[in-house]
Write a protein that binds this DNA or RNA. Structure first.
Ligand SMILES: [Zn+2]
Ligand SMILES: [Zn+2]
Ligand SMILES: [Zn+2]
Ligand SMILES: [Zn+2]
Lengths: 169, 169
DNA sequence: CGGCAAGTGCTATAATATATCATTCCACGA
DNA sequence: TCGTGGAATGATATATTATAGCACTTGCCG
């Protein structure tokens, strides 16, 4: 198995309106729910829809604000957090601890907590890579420390190519 | 340069009352302040003292609660956050985004944002490694994406050796 | 129908973090 | 000695993020 995500393709373009990202996410959601005997309820679906509108990360309350589109009424924060917990449990969305925000997974079902999150501080877009090397090294390190590794979070902040070009020229 | 932190030594023992950790941290604090033309004020020193009492991470408000020991009065949250911002800027303490908490650096001055944080979900102790391989891979990945890498955060949650032994037998 | 489990609505509240502006402190030069 | 300026802090208020608790609804299965 080689590098499973081509790094050149890992970072979504600034105005990428999803050549299939949403559709992939939704179909992954449905199959993951089926497999796990759970269901993609309206509330969960709404949160997933909102996050999958772009590759930006959103705060839970940003998501909440967008929940009233259509229906006149808005749920409480707990509804959003419950959906986020459910969706992140399936790997459909991820949380950025460095920013207390959430984003839709770019490769649902293709990684199991082994990806790296690349956050552009300028445009807010988040990309994902899945480095084969890192996937090997961390368990080795853990073994040498006799540490049982449960969850890994790798967040890289910087500036994406698009923003660098735009700002400089 | 080989692995700069022996992984076997990276995770502090559960009841390690610091064979020199505090002293190292304090002397690093003083020299880093000198170098950067800043000063280790009483407020900053107090926060550093509290965090360096153990290898556990603490919430900002946990730190705040311990600030009155001795003097009868307690500062506001802002004082704690200001100290934390200052100290983390010098690499003397680190923030755990996955838990919104803070801990004292185990190797102040020895790494520049290149370490991995190992968090024991059972005892709360946090260890640090500095993997040479990861320090190489991430910039390479960034280059291949034309992403300007500014800050990296790697947090690994699991269970330390001590806790595994204790629980199992 | 009755009982159960999963999910949600609703309200309150906890936990984390920052904004703003007045005040203190101290080094430094007049 | 005095005034001045910058860094740090105090104090208060408020913003932001997240969870607890409990009643209610819904759909399923016997
Ligand atoms: Zn993902
Ligand atoms: Zn960007
Ligand atoms: Zn450190
Ligand atoms: Zn432990």
């Amino acid at each position: 198995m080689v590098q499973s995500i081509d790094p050149g393709q890992a970072f979504p373009a600034r105005c990428d309106y999803h050549s299939g990202c949403r559709e992939r996410l939704l179909s992954a959601a449905e199959s993951l729910c089926r497999e796990s005997g759970t269901s993609l309820t309206a509330n969960r679906r709404a949160v997933l829809d909102i996050l999958s509108e772009s590759h930006h990360s959103l705060g839970a309350y940003d998501i909440l604000e967008r929940m009233d589109a259509g229906a006149g009424r808005r749920p409480g924060p707990a509804a959003v957090y419950r959906a986020l917990e459910f969706l992140s449990g399936l790997g459909l969305v991820h949380r950025l601890g460095s920013r207390n925000s959430w984003f839709a997974c770019s490769r649902p079902g293709e990684h199991r907590g082994r990806s790296q999150y690349w956050i552009c501080a300028n445009c807010g877009v988040v990309g994902e890579t899945e480095s084969e090397e890192i996937a090997q090294i961390l368990p080795e390190l853990a073994l040498s420390m006799a540490f049982r590794l449960d969850r890994v979070s790798i967040e890289i902040e910087g500036e994406c190519r698009g923003c660098q070009l735009q700002i400089k020229g």
